[in-house]
Design a protein around this nucleic acid. Structure first.
Ligand SMILES: [Zn+2]
Ligand SMILES: [Zn+2]
Ligand SMILES: [Zn+2]
Ligand SMILES: [Zn+2]
Lengths: 155, 155
DNA sequence: GATGAAATGAGAATCGTTGTCAACTTGGCT
DNA sequence: AGCCAAGTTGACAACGATTCTCATTTCATC
């Protein structure tokens, strides 16, 4: 149920969209299912994996719909995206503040990290070169303690 | 973005080896053509764009061969790779030291940047969380001075 | 309950990339 | 020079992720 805060506003069709809900969309059964299942796991999952998870959970949602729902959620800032080294887009429910990720290559365990100094540095170095409207991508990949124990100590 | 790769271990069953270039391959006409054309531009280009450039230059090289050549050059560290926000892989001839890029979204102008502090931070924060064998990707996107002038001051 | 816009789903279409495999080079050896 | 095995190429098929199409369904409002 969308008991959070429904805007019961007869929004005019041509009215300029408010910043409160630029790309809100309708809370359909499918979108709710996608949103709900995004809470049931920790790491990043591809759209196809989410689609499979839904099917396994009994919720049948079309693959294209899953793609559309995740895209929309990403644009709305409800989920974070991460492009794997193979180029596949993956999604994860995240906190809304700007942050980055430390991801285990083996098991996918993810840690959200922040680095104010890095953020400042990125801005500074960009401006020094005359660049404006700057954004950045920063991902750290490694082997987590558990996986490292298995691969090295498991001899 | 070469993660700390495998150590140089000559475990090949054959005795003959090439001390001068471990992963060189043969300097065929096609590979030379690809290597040569990589010097003729500044920003990042996709494999397909490189293929087109070659065709335009009169050098006819198969598309698959261009892909293979660029892959090999990337593995050998002769070119750097950058995945665009659309997920497409692009290549550029780069210096061999570890660095990152500041890329203009509009025209593709690229600046190589270094950030020792960021490198240390990435290592530190990773180790604090128990991660080992750490690598990272860091790209900065923005609008270069020239492009910004066109879009804002072009009135 | 009628109605029109938004959303869905099934499959086709797109697109970057990789695989296949026969024909062709290359380099080393006799 | 002539041979051979391994490396390489190119045309095209195959692939996988993502997007598009469009007929049908759902939703919110009247
Ligand atoms: Zn792990
Ligand atoms: Zn950041
Ligand atoms: Zn520019
Ligand atoms: Zn770095």
């Amino acid at each position: 149920m969308t008991s959070t805060e429904a805007n019961s506003r007869p929004s005019s069709p041509e009215a300029n969209s408010r910043p409160s809900s630029p790309e809100a969309g309708r809370p359909t059964k499918q979108r709710l299912a996608v949103a709900r299942i995004m809470d049931t796991f920790e790491g990043f999952r591809s759209a196809q994996e989410v689609h499979t998870l839904l099917a396994t959970a009994g919720e049948t949602v079309g693959l294209a719909t899953v793609y559309r729902a995740l895209q929309r959620m990403a644009e709305a800032g409800e989920v974070d995206t991460l492009r794997t080294e193979e180029g596949e887009l993956t999604y994860r429910r995240c906190s809304t503040t700007h942050h980055h990720h430390l991801v285990c290559r083996a098991c996918g365990a993810t840690v959200e990290i922040e680095g104010p100094a890095v953020e400042r540095w990125a801005q500074t170095v960009s401006h020094e070169h005359g660049y404006v409207d700057v954004s950045h991508t920063l991902e750290i990949f490694g082997t987590c303690a558990d996986c490292a124990r298995v691969s090295t100590g498991g001899r």
